[in-house]
Simulated scan of single mutants.
Amino acid sequence: MAVIEVEDLAYGWQGEGGTYRVEVAALSIAPDSRIVLTGPSGSGKSTLIDVLALALAPSVARRFTLNMDGTPVDLARLWQRGGRGREALARLRARLIGYVPQTGGLLPYLSVEGNIALTQRLSGRPDRARIADLAQRLEIADLLPRMPESLSVGQRQRVAIARALAHRPLLVLADEPTASVDPVRAAAILDLLFEASAGSALVIASHDADGLAGRAPLRLSPRITTGAGGTTAVFVPC
């Protein structure tokens, strides 16, 4: 059973340069799947990641469901319910989704260990052994007492990966996780991300199609059209 199923989903917004719209005709994210969203900067990859992360409400969705313990949850309907629906979405996000932002997004007032433990705390599933295991696998065990300001960019990304995986989510979403590092470090970070996320579905947004070649069986790339109605990016398998 798919973790998330999408059919005729779209998100539109008004930007400085006009009207923009991201569309997905169909997408099924299975457990343990590996999916890459590719395309140039500004094509809507990060927007789609945020919609899948339940951070942005889709403008329209014929189907947008999450399967939790064999029970499908209608995410589109929850968005329509207002405050109570958003509270339910926040609980689902905290429990079932791990997110790796472009620049790590670590909280500056928490130690490395505190940042990693944050997702466990929010989901109500503390597990110090899990933190220790991830820190060892991601080669950041000696960094646990340190504060984010003392870390390199690559170290921050590894901490962000550990935080995204600490609560054993069903779905891991990574938005340009190697955008701020050199090619050698980028390859190492991707290797760690793919290895450490075993057991979770993984979706990565990246403009570096070559660096991800062969890593994921499904790649979605946007077909972009610009006209009187604005710019539309429709993500399709490539």
Score class of each variant (00 low, 15 high):
Leu218Val: 07
Ala205Ile: 04
Leu218Ser: 07
Ser197Asp: 06
Val172Met: 06
Val234Lys: 11
Asp175Tyr: 09
Glu149Asp: 11
Tyr11Gln: 15
Val60Asn: 14
Gly17His: 15
Ile161His: 03
Ser33Gln: 00
Ser200Gln: 11
Gly227Gln: 11
Gln157Thr: 06
Leu171Asp: 02
Ala53Asp: 09
Ile4Ser: 07
Gly98Phe: 02
Ala61Thr: 15
Pro72Ile: 01
Arg185Gly: 02
Val159Met: 10
Val36Leu: 00
Val3Thr: 14
Pro58Lys: 11
Leu92Gln: 10
Ala117Tyr: 02
Arg185Leu: 09
Arg137Thr: 09
Asp133Val: 12
Arg95Ile: 10
Gly85Ser: 08
Arg146Trp: 03
Ala166Thr: 14
Gly211Ile: 05
Ser200Thr: 11
Leu48Phe: 12
Pro72Lys: 04
Arg95Asn: 05
Gln80Tyr: 10
Gly18Gln: 03
Leu171Gln: 06
Trp79Val: 02
Arg219His: 11
Leu48Val: 02
Tyr20Lys: 08
Arg21His: 12
Gly83Asp: 13
Ala53Ile: 03
Tyr99Cys: 00
Thr71Met: 10
Leu110Trp: 09
Asp208His: 12
Ser150Trp: 04
Tyr99His: 08
Arg81Thr: 05
Thr71Ser: 12
Arg125Thr: 12
Arg185Ser: 09
Arg84Gly: 10
Leu171Arg: 08
Lys45Pro: 02
Pro222Gln: 12
Asp175Leu: 00
Ala216Cys: 13
Leu151Phe: 06
Ser206Asp: 06
Ile224Cys: 12
Arg223Gln: 12
Phe235His: 03
Gly211Arg: 12
Leu37Ile: 00
Tyr20Val: 12
Ser33Met: 04
Arg121Thr: 10
Ser33Arg: 02
Arg91Ser: 07
Gln80Gly: 14
Met147Phe: 04
Ser150Arg: 14
Gly124Pro: 05
Ile29Lys: 00
Gly230Trp: 01
Gln120Cys: 07
Val172Lys: 05
Asp208Thr: 15
Arg84Met: 05
Leu52Tyr: 11
Ala201Glu: 08
Ser33Ile: 07
Gly83Glu: 13
Pro72Cys: 04
Ser152Pro: 06
Arg130Val: 03
Arg163His: 04
Pro72Gln: 09
Thr119Glu: 00
Arg81Glu: 08
Leu218Trp: 15
Thr47Ile: 05
Asp142Met: 09
Leu106Ser: 07
Leu106Gln: 08
Gly227Pro: 06
Pro101Thr: 09
Ala198Trp: 08
Leu48Pro: 01
Val159Arg: 13
Arg158Val: 09
Arg84Cys: 05
Leu92Val: 10
Pro222Cys: 13
Glu149Met: 12
Ala94Lys: 10
Met1Tyr: 04
Leu202Val: 13
Asn67Phe: 01
Arg130Cys: 08
Pro222Val: 04
Leu165His: 02
Gly230Tyr: 01
Arg62Ile: 09
Asp50His: 15
Gly199Thr: 14
Gly82Met: 04
Leu220Pro: 02
Leu193Met: 08
Glu7Met: 12
Arg146Asn: 05
Ala162Ser: 05
Val181Gln: 02
Ser123Tyr: 00
Ala201Arg: 02
Gly82Asp: 07
Thr38Phe: 00
Pro148Glu: 13
Gln155Arg: 06
Val236Trp: 07
Ile35Trp: 03
Asn67Cys: 08
Leu170Lys: 10
